[in-house]
Each structure stands twice: as C-alpha cells, then as structure tokens.
C-alpha cells in the first residue's frame, strides 16, 4: 500500500509540474504576447501619458509670457520646501507698483510630486510635464529656474 501511494504521489507531482510547464510553454510559442520593451532603443517612440508627474514646468506662450504672479501659494503649500520664489517690485509706466517674479526656483531633488503646487496655483501657472529622465552628473543641476530668461507676466492675469 505504501509503495503504491509513493508511486502515485510521484505521478501526481509530475503531472502538476507539467501543468505549470504547459502555461509557460504556450507562451513560448506565442511570441506576440511578449510585452517587454527595449528602453533606451525605443526612446523616440516612447509616449508617456499626459498627466504623468514627471517634473514641474511653467508653460510659456509664444511671446515668452508666463502666468506666475509671484503670490507664493505654491511655496506655502509645498510640504518639503522644494519651491522658492524671489520677487521684486515692478514699477509700471503709470507709476503703479506691482509684484513680479525674478526667479521661480524649483529643486527637483527634494520634490515628492504630491501635486499640491499645481493644484493650488490660483492662476494655473504650473503644470506637470511627462519627462522622466532626470539623471544628471552634479547635484547643482537639480535646482532649476522655471521662468525663462526675459519672460514677463501674461496680460490679463491678475496678481
């Protein structure tokens, strides 16, 4: 009796192994089910989802204008201090003083991509960009200035 049980156990075990190999074998003969991508080679064809939280950017229009008024709400809402805004007083032609941004500093090395700055910005000046290749050789390059050189506030955006 023991010997018969021993032999049936062996056969049951072999059958269970064959069942598993049937699954892997069926994939072996179906090469179109392969989902692996060759990453650095397919860089040009890569399409990321538009909402992907890759990095924070400040969109500029064709006339080099942005929407940031320098109110500092994003700086206030950032949980780990990765945003810093440096403002100055802009005197317009009719003598009115107005706040404008000098530098919108964004430290991507400290950013946790919680999305609070993008969500709370009253003038929708910030947005996420689907760029994910952030490797750089020096730590200083992780500190970015989001407003472009010589850019001004877009007309119609209230400060």
């Amino acid at each position: 009796m023991n010997i018969i049980g021993y032999i049936t156990d062996i056969f049951k075990g072999v059958i269970s192994l064959l069942k598993g190999m049937k699954v892997t074998g069926s994939y072996f003969f179906r090469p179109w089910t392969v989902v692996t991508q060759k990453y650095p080679e397919n860089r040009k064809k890569l399409e990321m989802y538009e909402r992907m939280k890759g990095e924070i950017v400040m969109p500029h229009n064709a006339k080099n204008e942005h929407k940031c008024t320098g109110c500092g709400i994003c700086e206030l809402n950032c949980p780990n201090g990765s945003i810093e805004i440096i403002t100055f007083q802009l005197v317009s032609e009719d003598g009115k003083k107005k706040r404008a941004i000098d530098k919108h500093i964004y430290r991507i090395g400290m950013c946790t991509f919680c999305g609070l700055c993008v969500k709370t910005c009253p003038s929708k000046a910030l947005s996420f960009a689907p760029n994910f290749e952030h490797a750089v050789f020096s730590r200083e390059r992780l500190t970015k200035i989001l407003n472009k050189e010589g850019s001004v506030l877009e007309k119609g955006v209230e400060g």
Partner: peptide, 12 residues
C-alpha cells in the same frame, strides 16, 4: 486561472 496552474497546484 494561469496563476493557479503555475503555482497553486505545483507539488513543490
């Protein structure tokens, strides 16, 4: 069901 065939029933 493939999960079951691969691992659950496996004798090892």
């Amino acid at each position: 069901p493939e999960y079951d065939q691969l691992l659950t029933g496996n004798v090892i």
